[in-house]
């Protein structure tokens, strides 16, 4: 129950970092990177619940991000919804789809589950790319302005576009982190972690394995969907790449790199993989090689991921 005592500390530190970091930002570009870290961090937090807590793999979560993103692009155009409502609609849709497909595919385990979720993700990105008359196809679709920034302006809070998205996505990440940390310590969280270690043992002690797996899957789909919506609204433009296979893999990599069972690890993994490509551009041709090397070294020397390994190291010293 170590995490329980440090739960508020984790949230506090995260909030402090989000608040203090901008004082060192020389330009709007850094706000953009920050916002991307928060958006990715949100989706990865969802995957921590699914992969880290419940022990179920998904290689198709970008599919939910795609649903969330295209809800914000298409619902305002075809249904006349406000983008904020479109975001909620996307979330509801993702949750419903996750519930529907989760029931059959969560019976699968290991590789079979990985391939089934992979198929789902590819299916979503193919529909988005092929239904060009509705979705705009591979060339993408515009997303309307959220309008919240203008609203804040009228009450005297004057933020630049980059600053607004930094703050807005930061709030979502904090809320997502808070929820995940609470879940971790709740009876449901313990049930999830029990089935992570042994499904049979969990079932023996009376955990409704099917139901908990499904809830974790739906919850992580909601996280991914919100992250997709935020990305779409922030960029005001979306292409099927958001739902693509590569994005799914990227999210899982962030989860594992940060430490699959750790909520702050989600943010660390997202931060590392979002910033590294930007920092490594100075290396030009060796960029991808070094990125791969760093990822390999982290996994070899910190097999349980950045945050759990480093915290163990720190505790060992004190």
């Amino acid at each position: 129950m170590r995490l329980s005592s440090s739960k508020h500390l984790t949230l506090l530190v995260l909030a402090a970092i989000i608040l203090i970091a901008p004082f060192g930002f020389p330009s709007n570009f850094y706000y953009r990177i920050g916002s991307l870290i928060f958006v990715n961090g949100l989706a990865v937090t969802g995957l921590v619940i699914l992969i880290g807590f419940a022990g179920q793999i998904s290689l198709g979560h970008a599919g939910f991000a795609g649903i969330g993103a295209y809800a914000c692009a298409l619902a305002p155009q075809y249904l006349g919804l406000h983008p904020a409502l479109a975001m909620l609609l996307g979330t509801a849709l993702s949750a419903a789809i996750a519930w529907l497909i989760g029931r059959p595919i969560l019976r699968l385990q290991g590789y079979y589950l990985a391939v089934a979720t992979l198929g789902f993700g590819i299916l979503v990105s193919m529909v988005l790319a092929n239904e060009a008359p509705i979705t705009g196809g591979p060339d993408g679709h515009e997303v309307p302005e959220l309008g919240l920034r203008k609203l804040l302006e009228t009450i005297g809070l004057d933020l630049s576009n980059a600053q607004f998205w930094y703050a807005f996505t930061g709030l979502f990440l904090l809320a997502g982190t808070w929820l995940a940390l609470n879940l971790h310590d709740s009876p449901s969280g313990r049930a999830l972690r029990a089935l992570h270690d042994s499904e049979i043992a969990a079932r023996t002690v009376g955990v409704d394995v099917t139901r908990y797996k499904l809830s974790a899957f739906v919850l992580s789909a909601v996280y991914a969907s919100l992250s997709g919506s935020l990305l779409a609204l922030m960029n005001k433009f979306i292409t099927p790449d958001a739902a693509g296979f590569l994005h799914s893999i990227e999210l899982v990599t962030m989860t594992v790199l940060g430490g699959a069972g750790s909520v702050p690890g989600a943010v660390a993994g997202a931060a590392l993989l979002t910033m590294l490509p930007q920092v490594l551009t100075v290396l030009q041709d060796y960029e991808h090689m070094i990125l791969g090397l760093i990822m390999m070294l982290v996994m070899i020397f910190m097999p349980s991921g950045l945050v759990p390994s480093l915290s163990r190291l720190l505790r060992g010293r004190t």
């Binding site: 440090s6 702050p264 690890g265 943010v267 931060a271 910033m275």
Partner: peptide, 12 residues
Amino acid sequence: MNFALRTAAAVL
């Protein structure tokens, strides 16, 4: 555990 976060912020 927060070390990683601080490092991340520093790199940022």
